[in-house]
Amino acid sequence: MGREKGNKGFLKNKRSKKMERYSFKFFFNNEQREYKKKRYTYVALDSCILIDMMKVLTGTAQFKKSPQYYSMLSKLMKRNIFNKDHSKNPRGDLVFCVLPHVLQEISNEDGEIHASMKKFIEKQTVILDIAPCNQKNFDKKISRLSSEYCNKGFFLDEENAPTVDSLIVAEASFFNLTLLSRDRHICINFKDKSPKEKIRVIKEINRKAFSNNFDGAQAEPKRIEHFLNALEKGEDMPKLRNEDILISDLQQFIWGIDHNGIAKEKE
């Protein structure tokens, strides 16, 4: 006991504290801290969540009706790495991504984003544009995956026909992105009889489809509260995969975010 006390006394010694800053341990810890700062979490957003975010930005969100939901949403938005003017938010650690089918929903026939959403989407999110040479292959994989979900009885409408939601979940799975949604179809819901089973089956289908054992965290659709809880607990978040099928400018842009922590202006 006495010896331990003595050791503690030695560690508190002023001189040793001074010397500590030159030690490898001190340097390494700081390096790790720096590395942690640069790790961003990529998440995909459902169209409903995008509109709710717009409501928060324009001040039309009905905070009184669902205060908890909107406060969580604004908490989430504060962690976005992009500010309103597309500059970098130093406190941000989340990159909001827009999947191809979500983009289709919020765009008109000519592929232009609807006027009310345009500024927000262009400045504060990353649109996952697929390179034209990979488009056909990507579509094939996504439709195969979505039909597998539907065969298991997920993401069907009242007439038991597949919905667009299955394609959106498939796209998020392809990029290994957590899909944030408040849609009953998409994410775990308490009303669902066996929500965990549903997610387990979806993950199993994804593992088979991508023939990947997902040594890191495997993505799954989540509600905002579950996602924020996981972030606060410091759980391992899924990392963006298959980004090599995106257009080259976007790949460079993502590389810039990950390595420099600086978001260069999109051309």
Binding site: C48, K55, D157
Partner: peptide
């Protein structure tokens, strides 16, 4: 799409239209 493209559209109305558009897209898919 034409209705949604209005700049000054109320976002609650926009959300309702989007749900309808999703349904139409699913119908096209099937």
């Amino acid at each position: 799409d034409m209705v949604m493209n209005d700049k000054d559209i109320d976002l609650n109305f926009y959300q309702k239209l989007l749900i309808l558009k999703k349904r139409v897209m699913s119908k096209i898919l099937n």
